[in-house]
């Protein structure tokens, strides 16, 4: 029972981590609580469903199309909305919520309110690990999160693009003085965040269903993860995601299923009170 709960927690945590990393990346660069990320996940999932079922693209090609589209939609949110409040951070949450409504309702308008399914070729698969059973879609979710975060870490630490994003995150004025184009870094950060949202859609949709508000609830878990891990801290978000997944899974089994989500927020409150900078905070602000 414990082992199965741990495995379930890791699967759940991988989703939280995937969402949290995208959120913390944008927050690190622009100080924006990007609630609209949930809408990007939703639109990415719908585009995958449409490409696969209506346009009859092969599944993984449709997923690739949806991921790229999610990246572009995320960039559009920056270009058409967030950039106008860059110097007014108090306005950013309101803009983010407004964008979320626009994106969700765009999905509602375009595809209707019915639940639809994104079913991968391995949707019925089961993997036995010792005495535990893990759905193939859960394994895919964990692998997607792990590979995404590894690639993101390599991008941020081993490439010029990553160094530029980190520099803007730590001190935009100094970065600009050194010749780094701020606009380009903002767009790049939003594109990466959108791609992560697309990957979250690919990993998450097969376990549940695609509908206009599919990510509105789970995005709050993403923000819990961001705060647990320390704002702007990518690895902190990854670890915070796994931690939150384990807490929610174990509490559902051993405490009360009804309070699963509430217990996650209790942990958040404890962290805010006892370690306000997050569990994995560092002295310097960073996005890697």
């Amino acid at each position: 029972m414990l082992q199965q709960a741990l495995v379930n927690g890791v699967v759940l945590g991988a989703l939280f981590a995937l969402l949290g990393v995208g959120l913390t990346l944008v927050y690190g660069v622009m100080d924006v609580p990007n609630f609209a990320q949930a809408g990007v996940v939703t639109l990415g999932a719908y585009i995958m469903v449409t490409l696969h079922q209506a346009a009859h693209w092969p599944f993984f090609l449709a997923v690739a199309g949806g991921v790229v589209a999610a990246g572009l939609i995320s960039v559009a949110t920056e270009r058409f909305a967030y950039r106008f409040v860059r110097t007014r951070p108090l306005a950013a949450p309101a803009v983010a919520l407004g964008l979320l409504l626009i994106l969700d309702n765009s999905a509602l308008e375009l595809w209707g309110g019915d639940h639809v399914s994104l079913t991968p070729p391995y949707g019925a698969g089961l993997i036995q690990l010792g005495g535990m059973t893990v759905p193939a879609v859960g394994v895919a979710l964990v692998l997607t999160a792990a590979v995404s975060m590894l690639l993101l870490w390599l991008l941020l630490t081993r490439t010029g693009i990553g160094r530029a994003i980190r520099a803007v995150s730590q001190n935009p004025e100094a970065a600009a003085t050194l010749g780094i184009e701020l606009e380009r870094q903002y767009v790049t950060a939003f594109f990466i965040s959108g791609v992560l949202a697309g990957l979250a859609a690919f990993a998450y949709a097969p376990t549940y269903a695609v509908f206009p508000y599919m990510a509105d609830g789970v995005i709050f878990d993403g923000f819990v993860v961001v705060i647990l891990g320390g704002l702007g801290n990518v690895w902190g978000a990854a670890l915070g995601g796994i931690l939150l997944g384990l807490v929610e899974s174990l509490s559902a089994v051993y405490v009360s299923a009804a309070y699963q989500t509430a217990i996650g927020f209790v942990v958040l409150l404890l962290v805010i009170v006892l370690r306000p900078a997050g569990l994995f905070a560092t002295t310097a602000r960073r996005v890697a």
């Binding site: 699967v11 789970v218 089994v253 989500t261």
Partner: peptide, 11 residues
């Protein structure tokens, strides 16, 4: 009984 908004029913 799962709480509102639940999408992962594994626990």
């Amino acid at each position: 009984n799962y709480p509102p908004g639940t999408t992962n029913f594994s626990p």
